[in-house]
Structures are given as C-alpha cells and as structure tokens.
C-alpha cells in the first residue's frame, strides 16, 4: 500500500488532541520484535504553522509532560500534506535551541557588555525613554501650520514574524504615539 495522508483530527474544533495510535497511520501490522516506544507516545498534538515562507505549512508539535518532543508536518493540511522543507523540518531543534535569548538584556551607553534585567525594569525604562523622546520631539504642527501630530524621531521596524493580532496592536500603538517611520520586511 502506498502510504498517504492519515485521517486525523478531522472533526476536531481545536488543534489539540491526544495521540491515538490506532488512528495515527496505516495498518502495516504490528512488528512486535522491533516495536520500540516512540518519543511521542502519549504526547499531546498541537497544530502550529511553520514560521518561514508564506506557504504556511502546518506543523504538528508533540508535547509530552509540557515539553516539546517532536515536530512534523500536518498531513491533513491540504497544502503541505505533511511535507516540510529543510527549515520546516528543523522546527524541533529551532524551538528547543539553547542559544535562544531567554532574558531581557540591557546594554548601558558606552558599556562593553550585556546585563540581565527583569521585564519590569526593562519595560519601565523603555516606557520612560519613549515618553521622554516623544515629549521632547513631538511635532504638533508643520511649517504650514497644519496639525500633524508626528513623532518623527522614534521609529518602528518589523515584523512579518508577528501574528495578525500582534501586527494590528503594533500599528495601533505606533500611530497613537505619532510614529511615522514605520516599516517591515514587506519592503525588503
């Protein structure tokens, strides 16, 4: 039998389900002698979307005891049908990557090193900087005397890595501040 897509989660309204091995694939018949445990046995399956090109291949994340144990293509998603390219296939090591930035880091003016900071400290400091920059540099009116409400000296760049919900909030926040220098990956 040529193996194809498996029939899984069809009725699920959510993207989360428990692995049901009887439904996980094709009945090749049990091979008792060599049947080892699979790392995703008993794992929860969560549907995600590959964070790279805009094909938006679906990925199933296997989560066991709160930890990511495996990722592979979602065979039901009609576009990638379980397939993934090199980047998509590397989602496990990409997510579990120990090189990730894990704490807010701060580099003081003229310093030669990063320092760890708390979120509270970092966000308060940034909020102060934004307010200070805005209060000092806000352009209420242009040369013609027209009301323009611009904060030209503060910019926002990025990102297509945001979800739609995050993009929407970011746009709203930046326009509220008066930011006009706003751009992201769509232009490069």
């Amino acid at each position: 039998m040529l193996l194809n897509r498996r029939d899984f989660l069809k009725a699920a309204g959510g993207g989360v389900a428990c692995v049901s091995l009887s439904r996980m694939g094709f009945d090749l018949g049990p091979v008792k002698a060599y049947a080892a445990d699979l790392k995703m046995d008993g794992a929860k399956e969560v549907i995600s979307v590959c964070p790279f090109c805009s094909v938006s291949c679906h990925i199933i994340a296997h989560v066991k005891d709160g930890k990511l144990v495996n990722t592979e293509g979602d065979p039901d998603y009609p576009i990638n049908q379980g397939a993934l390219c090199a980047k998509g296939a590397a989602m496990l090591s990409m997510t579990r990557n120990p090189h990730r930035a894990m704490k807010p880091m701060y580099r003081a003016p003229h310093s030669d090193k990063w320092e760890e900071k708390s979120w509270d400290w970092a966000l308060n400091r940034i909020a102060d900087l934004v307010k200070e920059s805005r209060d000092k540099n806000f352009v209420e009116k242009n040369d013609k005397g027209q009301r323009v409400n611009r904060l030209e000296k503060v910019f926002a760049l990025g990102t297509s890595h945001m979800s739609n919900e995050e993009c929407s909030l970011t746009h709203q926040a930046m326009r509220a501040l008066g930011v006009v220098h706003m751009d992201h990956q769509a232009r490069i």
Binding site: V49, L68, M91, A101, P104, Y106, R107, H110, S111, N164
Partner: peptide, 25 residues
Amino acid sequence: PKKVKTEVFLLPSAHRLEKDGTVTN
C-alpha cells in the same frame, strides 16, 4: 563599544510554536 552611546535592549521573543494567533499565507 566604549564609543557607542546607544542604550540597547534585547527583549527575548517567543517562537511560533510558543504562541496563539493567526497568520495569513
């Protein structure tokens, strides 16, 4: 670095598998 005046923050962000939301293909 001693000649660079910028106050820099690196805020660690979540990866796709670590958040809810929508994307548009």
